[in-house]
Amino acid sequence: MANQPTPTPEKKPVAPEPRLVVTAWPHVRTPESVPRIMFSVVAALLPATLVGLYYFGSNAAWTLLWSVGAALGAEWLIQRAKGEKDTLGDGSAAVTGLLLGLTMPPSSPWWLSAIGGAFAIGIGKQVYGGLGHNIFNPALISRVFLLIAFPVEMTTWPVVAPPFPGLDVVTGATPLGQLQIGRLTGKGLGEAVDLSLGAAFVGSIGGSLGETSALALLIGAAFLLSKRIITWHISITMLFSAALFALVFWLIDPHRYASPLFHLLTGGMLIGAFFMATDMVTSPTTPRGQIVFGAGCGLLTMVIRTWGGYPEGVSFAIVIMNAFSPMIERYTRPRRYGEVRT
């Protein structure tokens, strides 16, 4: 810089030359961040968590503590072993642990929750390379693993007895379980299923810890939608396609098939649609792809519920659609500006 002009005496810099930060454009950024997204999801799950705690008491608290704790522990241990900086602070492991816990039976033994949390992070996420690289929703792949490996423990449902049930857990089938038994034993719908939709709305029904109250889940969903952390594309198409499927069969034979509303309010349809299928990492990034993905989730759920061996289909449906996500994305790219079609 031999020729750099020195400031002339009468034209001094306004202040001593400040130390300036030089970076590439853009120089402003959204305040949104990965931790903010993740902790917003945690906040959105709070109503459902509280309802779960209200109806299922200390059992539920222990289930959640073990699943979240194991998820965080696994994340920390594995990243330490890999020599990476841990990413506990981004909140993603906490979300995974919480989501898993909320979809477990509230009376799960501690080791079931712990295995689930560790599997979700270890096999569901870290083996792929950590946040952003996994193919399947970590919480759901872990739930599917638990369902297959521990079918008895994963389908032992305590009957709701708020507040705070005693030590003896009375178990019973969930509404979808009753529907399944009814189907297998050839009973009619009214005979087999004992469910008031009002109970399903507030959450006083048997089922997983955090998915029994439609109201609580909808409050959380409204929060996420209003913060634009999720968009309508996946959730609404999933619910719509499931409802449409149910409606067709219900109209054909209302004594054998449950109503669309029954299907929307039971068995994790809502938590799946708003909190699981919308997992950013494992769903398509293209708007049209999200619609296809959501429709696929809804349809597969209903196919499993109607003809499958499991009473509940949401977990399997979403995990299967996760696998299709890259392909869906490839065929639903947005139209480019000035795209020349040949």
């Binding site: 949104e32 990965v34 997204i37 990413t87 981004d90 993603s92 950590g130 946040l131 952003g132 690289h133 950013m280 990492v281 494992t282 769903s283 990034t285 293209t286 708007p287 999200q290 947005p334």
Partner: peptide, 13 residues
Amino acid sequence: RSCIRCASCVNAC
């Protein structure tokens, strides 16, 4: 951080 595939950039482009 890693891309979390949130689609914000796809929508903003």
